[in-house]
Design a protein around this nucleic acid. Structure first.
Lengths: 130, 130, 130, 130
DNA sequence: TTTT
DNA sequence: TTTT
């Protein structure tokens, strides 16, 4: 019923772009998200979380995000089931992004504002000041 | 840049419907959200949080939610400034809803599924199973 | 850096309790979380999301939650890697709970308040009313 | 019952430190959070959201955050009611922080990791790798 | 492996 | 009262 994920982390590599047979773009990337605490050996651990972004948001991710960049992601956690080549059932967890914000390199050479993109970006404000 | 609020609480009264001059519906309601801890006097405290829902989501809220109902709200926290009658500046905080889920009365008399509404509800899935 | 998950769903079965060699309790359960949209075949899909709760929160979950119950979970998404019997690397995703709220059966026979438990539950308020 | 806020924004000024009569530190600051959409006049709007951090987290905020810094905040939305000098009831909204992450200046001169602080920071991991 |  |  409710499924909300918010992550801040760094891309482990450049996003991978794919296109459906219908030409719908989808970007895949992995965020390295440090855990808040050290483990019992005093080491900082990291979760490597797969993310996907569809359509315009996917294109924006593919065009602008690169390995090492810091990003904030909002989305929902999706569990996909599939059958592996050996016939066993496997499950894949990934965050389907509703929005992706770029948190480093806040200003580009032309002095433009920090890039920030949402799946539902539009010229119409979400609430009108009537 | 990122502004995400998730609340679960009960409506303190029936939602109030208004319409902009252009006829855009907007529902206002207040959620009573119990704090997780008791205060030093051993009393449970409650935050009364104002929420608004625009357009179709607003109509759904106005048509289905009533005083006392349990709801989960997702949205963003908005601070509006205005001038009071005495000329002083005031600020109002409210959560602009992206989605509202109804958490009690899970099945109606006809055995229908639990009602659940999102601002961006559509027949198109957010991610296509290609 | 930041890793926050909020879910509302129903338990697919009773929680499973385990204890570490040191006696630390941990409860495992799976939430069925309906997706907000129907897919292209007009079917409602569901994500089955594994959750774990440690220590006192785990005991509370084990003592009170049962198959079919509606719950709200807050936590962080953890990806664990392990080696399968066939020597291949596998990954498991699970939500490590910070808090679990029980959303149905809001009042018990004695008229007590809705049960609600957090990992950090305490008599000390998080912010003091000085 | 559930009250979760996640914000990313910039401090509008240096945090203000106070101490309760018992000596408990509390830091107050305001985050400027840009809205994702432009309004009908094509202007980007901003929400100015008051935040407070108690105890050790408050001290860390006071010691490290300054005007203009980019930060991610997790917490809960609290509505405080009080009586103004003219006898009218007023309400104040503020986010009580559970954790604050510093998002710019990711590495210090010594090459140390990005600073990141949580109210519940500890050497004990939240889940043990048993 | 799945809940309503 | 506001940040970039």
């Amino acid at each position: 019923m409710l499924n909300r994920v918010v992550l801040i982390g760094r891309l482990t590599r450049d996003p991978e772009m794919r296109y459906t047979p219908q030409g719908v773009p989808v970007a895949s990337f992995t965020l390295a998200v440090d855990r808040p605490f050290s483990n019992q050996q005093g080491q900082r651990e990291t979760d490597f979380i797969d993310c996907i972004a569809w359509r315009k948001l996917g294109e924006t991710v593919g065009n602008h995000l690169t390995k090492g960049r810091l990003a904030a992601v909002e989305g929902r956690l999706q569990i996909r089931s599939y059958e592996a080549q050996d016939g066993t059932k496997r499950r894949v967890a990934e965050v389907v992004c509703d929005s992706v914000r770029f948190l480093d390199r806040p200003r580009d050479a032309q002095g433009g504002a920090m890039e920030s993109f949402g799946a539902d970006e539009t010229e119409l404000p979400d609430d009108l000041p009537f």
